[in-house]
């Protein structure tokens, strides 16, 4: 039951966000609060998972790398971001911001790869036949390219026109494509662990990646699909909220799964 509650949390947060948008006159403030709360929640989940492990444990490093990305993005928002950071108006802020975002994205990518490769490191086989596994990987790569490929092209064009700051966006988009492609091993690991407490972690991480996928897809195609910028913003922020919410839920699920109660090892995981 308690693992199922973790699925409810992101949707409850989404419902609260949509209600706030409907009743609050200052939508910009609602978005601002939503963005920072979502990132903080994801950071909390990553930290909860990481610190359940001991120094030197494989998954501690992976979760710390995911968490540092959220932490650095929050640091960027508070101190360096042009429109809101305490030092956002300084001449050096854009470069510093670029470095912070770049470091965060590199860590996030490495952490995601580590969690996706856990089956190989642990030495077990993923679910499904080799043919099914290859098909799932191909579908994930195709979806990743469709969702974030446009952002790569856009940022590359901006760099070609002399906007070097777009190199951070370019790297972020490429990192997103690689991360989204990893939905395949995440999903197959979740299926392999079905019925066990660890399955929840990978299932919720898969949901989080789908949230980020939707977020990037909205940024890529939102304007083409709808002329209503506010509606597009609402969808993209909803996607971000779900991505961060499921990220937090995955971290909490990981912490719950790795608990020092030997008796639970002998019982099936609670649904």
């Amino acid at each position: 039951m308690k693992y199922r509650l973790l699925i409810v949390v992101p949707f409850a947060a989404l419902a609260a966000f949509l209600v706030a948008l409907a009743v609050m006159p200052d939508r910009a403030a609602v978005y601002r609060v939503e963005i920072e709360l979502a990132k903080s929640a994801a950071l909390f989940g990553c930290a909860a998972a990481a610190f359940r492990f001991a120094r030197g444990d494989y998954l501690r490093t992976a979760w710390l790398l995911l968490g540092q990305c959220y932490l650095l993005i929050l640091v960027n928002d508070v101190f360096l971001r042009a429109d809101m950071g305490a030092f956002g108006h300084e001449s050096w802020a854009p470069v510093a911001s670029g470095i912070v975002i770049f470091v965060g994205n590199v860590g996030q990518l490495v952490g995601t790869v580590m969690i996706a490769r856990v089956w190989r490191v642990a030495g077990f086989e993923l679910a499904g036949s080799p043919l099914v596994r290859r098909a799932v990987v191909l579908i994930a790569v195709a979806i990743a390219l469709v969702s974030a490929g446009d952002l790569v092209v856009t940022s590359a064009r901006e760099i070609a026109h002399g906007q070097t700051a777009a190199s951070v966006d370019l790297f972020s988009s490429i990192a997103d494509i690689i991360s989204f492609s990893l939905i395949a091993p995440f999903l197959l690991t979740a299926v392999a662990f079905r019925g066990g407490s660890l399955g929840w972690t990978w299932a919720l991480l898969t949901a989080s990646l789908f949230g980020w996928l939707l977020f990037d897809a909205t940024l890529s195609f939102g304007a083409a699909i709808s002329a209503n910028a506010d509606a597009v913003k609402r969808v993209s922020e909803s996607a971000r909220l779900l991505a961060c919410g499921f990220g937090m839920a995955a971290g909490v699920a990981q912490r719950m799964a790795v608990r020092s109660v030997p008796a639970t090892a002998m019982a099936p995981a609670e649904g």
Partner: peptide, 19 residues
């Protein structure tokens, strides 16, 4: 296998023991 199934799920626990 039963001891590991709480963590890995029954299918993966049996597969792990077999492997």
């Amino acid at each position: 296998a039963q001891g590991l199934s709480g963590y890995l799920g029954p299918h993966m626990a049996r597969t792990a023991v077999k492997t």
